[in-house]
Design a protein around this nucleic acid. Structure first.
Length: 334
DNA sequence: GATGCGTGGTT
DNA sequence: TAACCAAGCAT
């Protein structure tokens, strides 16, 4: 892997038109803020930065199936859906199963959505399975069976948002695009802004920083995107960052400021026990396990409280994860 | 912009 | 051991 680097690029290059800065002021917007001047950020010299991170990546990157040279765009896309809020180790076996069973989008599109939900297993957030199935159907019908190459086309597919579209563009097609997931955002928050954690939602300021740091060369940019993400996943972690092993420790604004603790309200408390989500999970687990329709009385065993159980089941039906049959039995969608 | 949406491992 | 955390998306 070459460590040759493109010229330092501190301002957004002209090709930045491909990068959505959706939070920038609309043309006609006369806002309080001066129209031309975003808050200045002190950026590190990017050339050396790229080299440090990419060299680290060359040595420490995990060998993941969707990163191998023979992995196609579909493999990358499936992995990105599964990795939305689910750790790598739990994704690995399911991803392998899916790619073997459905090697192309059209193969998945031929199945019922319920089969996708069943094969999703216990990855969590099963609506992702439904959306991935719907996205595969759209690809088969409207894109000639090929995963789209354009960010805007990907964004139009169900289950694909700003991050996933960027990930496919960058990882699958090697194109130059900012990629802002929770790992990259945390790395940049610490490296550039000097705070422990990024804001809860991605901001225009973060997109500006990401664009300013993005290498100009296409191949280097794609490598950089994967490398910064991996650094966040393995070293610059949320809880216990391994700054002693970090190639950026000497340049890290947060580190240089003495690693100040996070200011402001707690991140977010998501309790699970007793929520509708837990009930939905139990109901769906019963339905996944059965290849024949399940009587209502069987689902009743999943949760004692009638009202909550009923609400959860209704929600699953509304979401298209469950079908109700005329005889008041239930199954995954055909 | 705040919520809801699964599941299981780590601290 | 509760709480936190994990490559977000849609509404």
């Amino acid at each position: 892997m070459s460590t040759h680097l493109p010229p330092t690029q501190l301002s957004a290059p002209s090709s930045a038109a491909t990068v959505a800065d959706t939070a920038s002021a609309a043309p006609g917007d006369i806002s309080r803020r001066a129209p031309s001047a975003p808050a200045p950020v002190t950026l590190p010299a990017t050339g050396a930065l790229h080299g440090a991170v990419i060299d680290w990546f060359d040595e420490h990157a995990r060998d993941l199936p969707w990163r191998r040279p023979d992995a196609g765009a579909w493999s990358v896309m499936v992995s990105e859906f599964m990795l939305q809020q689910t750790p790598v180790n739990r994704v690995l076996p399911v991803h392998a199963e899916w790619l073997e069973r459905w090697p192309r989008p059209a193969d998945l599109a031929k199945e019922s959505p319920g089969e996708a939900v069943r094969a999703w297993g216990r990855l969590g957030y099963p609506r992702r399975a439904l959306r991935l199935h719907a996205a595969a159907t759209a690809i088969a019908q409207q894109h000639g069976g090929e995963v789209p190459r354009e960010h805007t086309e990907l964004l139009a597919l169900p289950g694909i948002g700003e991050y996933t579209a960027a990930a496919v563009v960058s990882f699958a097609y090697g194109r130059r695009h900012i990629v802002l997931d929770t790992n990259v955002r945390r790395v940049f928050a610490r490296l550039v802004t000097g705070v422990e954690y990024p804001p809860n939602a991605t901001t225009a300021a973060e997109r500006r920083v990401a664009l300013a740091l993005l290498p100009g060369d296409e191949d280097t940019a794609a490598r950089w995107a994967a490398a910064t993400m991996e650094l966040g996943a393995l070293v610059c972690t949320a809880r216990s960052p391994q700054c002693g092993s970090c190639p950026l420790a000497a340049r890290c604004a947060w580190r240089l400021a003495g690693s100040p603790a996070h200011q402001g309200p707690p991140r977010r408390g998501q309790t699970y026990a007793g929520t509708d989500r837990q009930v939905r999970g139990r109901l769906l687990a019963i339905l996944r396990a059965s290849h024949t329709p399940v009587a209502r009385a069987v689902l009743d065993t999943a949760w004692a409280e009638d009202e909550q159980r009923s609400r959860a089941l209704d929600g699953l039906i509304t979401d298209g994860l469950v079908e109700q049959l005329p005889d008041d039995s239930f199954r995954l969608p055909a």
